[in-house]
Simulated scan of single mutants.
Amino acid sequence: MSVLVCFHAHPDDEVFTTGGVMRMAADAGHRVVLVTATDGALGEVPDGLLAEGETLVERRRAELQTSADALGVHRVVLLGHPDSGMVGTPDNTRADAFCNVDVEVAAAQLAQVLEQEQADVLTVYDPHGNYGHPDHVQVHAVGVRAAELAGVHAVYEATTDRDQMRELVTANPTWVEEGASTPDVETFGLPAEEITTRVDVTTVMAAKRAAMAAHATQVGDFGPFLAMAPEQLAAAFGSEVFRRRGPRPEHLETALPLQP
């Protein structure tokens, strides 16, 4: 049995880029640990969704656990740092925001988890954080340093296939809300030529969809995809891609290196 640790920025981030590999790892008998850096307090929430007296942090924590259950996660760890907000917002400047936390301090927190779990594989984000969110960029820096501290050598940058995303956005104009600007796909993820690992997760798409549905407060992120037919959802999210840190493998990998 191997131990897979997936490090993410906010509750809900676990679904898009690693939901499938977590479910597949758990189904294969491996231990799966999900670590979330921030409390997600600055996420948007539909009016009237929260119960009286309920905070967004409380709701997102519960949503995260429901998602983790759907994905077969054995342990959820919340580092508890304040959300930094979207890039360019005033919250980016708060001293306690995760994007401004000393990398060594946060890395020591994560390294402790990696050591406790005797992690074999760690996933982080690519250096751009997939799309430039300050908390995602910080996850990369903190995760890479934590792996060094804990001696974890198999580190994979969860990312997006930029070339595939370009094709999908072009073919699905309804993904962009009416009146909204078209997302700059050229800032998403990495080009296909830089991807070292491509995992087919279509066999566990039901679990991945259930994890999406668990995050009811984030309907703005997941709503368009939950409305998709199963075959469309599989086309968009049935492959999870990574760039392995260190020497590039000779051939494209089709799985993370988890040993029986």
Rank of each mutant, 00 (worst) to 15 (best):
T160N: 04
Q112A: 12
G132Q: 13
V113C: 10
Q118M: 05
R145P: 00
T187R: 15
A158W: 00
W175H: 10
A146C: 12
T197L: 12
Y131M: 04
H133W: 12
G143M: 02
Q164Y: 03
E193L: 02
H136N: 00
D163Q: 12
T170K: 14
A192G: 01
A150P: 07
L168K: 11
Q138M: 09
H153F: 05
P191F: 11
D126H: 05
L114D: 09
R162C: 02
V139W: 11
Q112N: 11
A147P: 04
E157D: 00
E167N: 06
Q112C: 04
L114C: 10
D161W: 07
G151I: 11
G129Q: 06
D184C: 08
A171I: 10
V137F: 00
V169W: 14
T123R: 02
D161L: 09
A180H: 13
D135C: 04
Q138C: 04
V176E: 03
T174A: 12
A192D: 00
V144N: 00
H153R: 10
A158M: 09
F188K: 03
A119H: 10
G179T: 12
P127K: 08
A141D: 06
D120M: 10
P183E: 06
G151P: 08
I195V: 14
R162G: 03
G129H: 09
T170N: 11
V142Y: 04
P191D: 10
V142I: 15
D135S: 07
H128W: 11
Q164V: 15
H128C: 04
L114T: 09
T174M: 01
V176G: 06
D135V: 07
L114Q: 05
V169R: 05
V113I: 15
D163F: 13
G151T: 10
H140P: 00
P134Q: 10
V169E: 01
G129P: 09
A146V: 14
D163C: 11
H140F: 15
V144H: 04
L122M: 09
D120S: 06
E178C: 06
V176Y: 08
V152D: 00
H136V: 09
A119W: 06
D120H: 10
Y131W: 14
V176F: 11
Q116W: 05
V113G: 08
D184S: 12
R145A: 03
Q112W: 07
E167M: 11
E193M: 03
A111K: 05
T197I: 11
E148S: 03
N130I: 15
E157C: 08
M165D: 02
A192M: 00
D126T: 04
V185H: 01
T159G: 00
H128S: 15
P191Q: 05
V124G: 02
V137K: 01
G143Y: 02
